[in-house]
Design a protein around this nucleic acid. Sequence first.
DNA 1: TAGACGTATTGAAATGTTTCGATAGATTAA
DNA 2: TTAATCTATCGAAACATTTCAATACGTCTA
Lengths: 91, 91
Amino acid sequence: MDTKKVEKIAKALADPNRLLILKELRKNQDCLYCSDMYEFIDLTQPSISHHLKQLSDAELVIPVKEGRYVKYHLNAAMIDQYVEFLQTLKS
Amino acid sequence: MDTKKVEKIAKALADPNRLLILKELRKNQDCLYCSDMYEFIDLTQPSISHHLKQLSDAELVIPVKEGRYVKYHLNAAMIDQYVEFLQTLKS
DNA sequence: TAGACGTATTGAAATGTTTCGATAGATTAA
DNA sequence: TTAATCTATCGAAACATTTCAATACGTCTA
């Protein structure tokens, strides 16, 4: 995993609202509609959309369009890759 | 590991210069003097000091005073704890 | 096809982070 | 004790991120 990617993932993980999204994804069998998120995040729609974009750009979540809805899936494989990188920081 | 701590670690890891410091620490048996860091980071002394503080506050590195020098040690245990948290994000 | 609905984008304000020059503090060397 | 050395802190400028209101874009449904 290259440095750019590591940085993007680290930044995506460095925000309480985005962590909350990831936690709630896990609670919900790893997928949620955009519109579900109003229930646990106290932000406006554009802000939530912005955070989802950060997570998508980092490939920590994967957006799947379903008509006018978008379902977001957790990408556990990307977490694994990031963890692998963190392990290399240790001797 | 509580959310505040997770956030602090994630932020500390979300900067290319700080990642570089961690990588170089690994290369050098997990410890480096502040003054060693000029060799691989192209920043002024106050900036490097600032980054070391972020890493220390996150407990990713541990500063040990040796006279007028400070030796920074990698804290692998904290990386492990963070990895453990990341694992809980997966189902 | 027109209106309603869900999501994304834009632009701007507020806030946070990074960086550096200047300077302070603490320790060693002369 | 004085000067030199290493690290930390302060204050300010530059830059990046977060947030929202307004609006645009797709898609569904009536």
